[in-house]
Write a protein that binds this DNA or RNA. Structure first.
Lengths: 137, 137
DNA sequence: CTTTGTGCAAATTCTTTGCACCAAA
DNA sequence: TTTGGTGCAAAGAATTTGCACAAAG
């Protein structure tokens, strides 16, 4: 993914590209590990030494608001961000804290129920347990 | 629900009853609003003036560990607690922050997928959007 | 110019920890 | 007495805010 392509991608979501925004988006696209703010900041800081954590917060708030990335609440400790906004679920290992994707579920489970009381516009499906690595396999 | 009944209920989960634990459990049973730690503390504090927030944290950690209550991660800001551990989903209003139950969904969506990579033992299904009250109906 | 974006430092909020005291078995 | 429970104060961690400066149009 070139910088130009990333710019086009951001513009699809009405996000004005900047050095920082482009760097954060490229990091998310290349590291689909559902990173925390701190992981993103720590990864980009050496490449972009003037980057501030506030900007990382601002940037991700903007991305979420514009619908370009999804925020996951699966991990109680930190917000995590996912650039893949397609229908998929997540698994959270209570031991190591890593978040993994779960694809190939019946897509029906992602359908939004109708309710007379609320206007529902998104769903987050979060599984948790322990991963094989932590179990010692 | 009498205190004696609450004690029996706690004992079913191998939780030794105490004044504080009983009060927190009764609050949860009588106020199924998925309260935060602070809401629980603020509600009980006038009745039990010596209660500390640390004890509320300790008590809920214990309840969750013993499986007597469920912790919800749906609200990024605070952990929320639900004494109803039956299969149901939640709706989070992004405007007012209230969490509502959603029952009568196809129970199949709560089934845990098999994975060769993880041992999955729970699922949380969280919808979000805006409630009628906030929309001005 | 005027608006928008960035970054530092401070403040705020939620949660955890260390430790002393209290209560029950 | 020994163990477990409670509560205060302090510490820690994540996030937000206020403000000044820089960049872009």
């Amino acid at each position: 993914m070139t910088t130009v392509q990333t710019h086009r991608y951001l513009q699809q979501y009405s996000i004005k590209p900047s050095m920082q925004r482009t760097a954060v988006m490229e990091y998310l696209m290349q590291n689909k590990i559902h990173p925390t703010i701190d992981e993103i900041f720590t990864a980009l800081s050496p490449i972009m030494p003037t980057l501030s954590k506030t900007t990382v917060y601002n940037t991700l708030d903007l991305f979420v608001e514009k619908g370009a990335v999804q925020v996951l609440t699966i991990d109680e400790k930190n917000a995590r961000y996912d650039v893949d906004i397609s229908k998929h679920a997540h698994f959270f290992c209570k031991s190591c804290g890593k978040v993994h994707d779960i694809f190939n579920l019946n897509s029906e489970i992602f359908s939004l129920p109708n309710s007379p009381l609320f206007t529902i516009n998104s769903v987050e499906i979060s599984y948790s347990g322990i991963c094989n690595t932590c179990k010692g396999n």
